[in-house]
Each structure stands twice: as structure tokens, then as C-alpha cells.
Amino acid sequence: MSHDHLNAIDATIAHIPSPGEQFFPPFSVTPELEAQVAELITHYPEGRQKSAILPILHIVQKQFGFINPASIEWTASQTGVSAAHVLGVVTFYPGLRQKCPGKFHFRICRTLSCAMSGAEDLFEVICRKTNIDPASINHHEPIGVSPCGMWSIEQVECLANCGNGPNVLVNDLLFDKVTPEKVDEIIAKYKQA
């Protein structure tokens, strides 16, 4: 996997267009964002603002949907490191995204306990109901987005609620013991929102 051309530096920083971007504002530095970041840096000892990279990226991702090249550079300027360093952090974590997900992002646990309770079938069910092409999802593009940009799906490793599988995390909310019928309810609920 490491020798793949998709892991080359240009490929890792390139902007990947996604229909989900219409639901998020484009990246811009607002005074509120600056204030939030200034407060975050105080959580760490003097001169250790590098530690704030991860929290800053979380705020950026929550607000703008994903982490684009401009936000990487801005994070680097706030924490006094190079943009390459921030990129190194971004590419390490599965939880940090360089591709915009849909307005509602489904994360389905695929690890043993959930798989035993039917997570594999559930993944296909959700793909079908949200009109996402499962063939578009692979190791390099873990997120599949529906053409309308409303929905996206990702298979993730253990969500730590193993006794109540299968588990699905929709944005910040966890749904357990999800059945195909429950998927209909969840989709209907978010469609109204």
C-alpha cells in the first residue's frame, strides 16, 4: 500500500471535489475562529502550541466539512510549524478528512462484534437507500458521497459499543442495534432537519 502512486505528496494535498461541499461554507478565517483557537492554545504549556494542531483541525473540520490545503497552511501558521508537518498529522488519522462528506455522514462500524450482528449487510442497505455507489469506496477513497451531497458513508473500525451492534455514527450521534427499518427512520428524521 505504501508504494502506491496515490500516496505521492502531490496526491495527498490535492483538493478532491465532492457534492457535499454545497452544504458547508468555504474555508475562511473569522474572528470567532481565531478566538476559539487562541483559547485552545492556552490549554497547553507555554511554547507547546504544536499540541493544539489536532483540536484546531477538529474545529476546522466541523465547521467547514473537511480540511483543505488553505486550512492546513493556516493551522501551520497558528501553531508555528510547517504546512508539511500539519499535512503529516492530517494524513495519519482516519478521523481527519481531506474530502468533504455529505451533510449527514454515516460511519458504520465494521469490526468483529458489529460484523457478527450484520454490519456488512447494513452497509449495503444504507448505500442503496441513500443512492451511494459502494464501488466508489476503496482504500484511498474511504468516503462515498451521494450525488445530491446530502449523504455520505464510511466504514470505520470499532466504535466501542460492541454489545449493541451494529452501530452507526451519524455526524455526532450514535445509533445502536440498527436494522434496515431503523435506517429508514434515521433517514426520514435527518431529511426533515
Binding site: H58, T79, V89, F92, Y93, L96, E157
Partner: peptide, 27 residues
Amino acid sequence: IHVHRGAGAYICGEETSLINSLEGVRP
């Protein structure tokens, strides 16, 4: 005491990896 959130990597449960994650480098 402050909360520091990870970003979905299993390896960060290993204590030295966790420390690197908290320091803001690749864990």
C-alpha cells in the same frame, strides 16, 4: 484538566503514541 480529542487512530491507545499525539506530531 483539559480534554484533548484524538482522531480515530487505534494506535493512540498505546501510551507513548498517545503522548506523541498530544504533542501534535505523527503519533
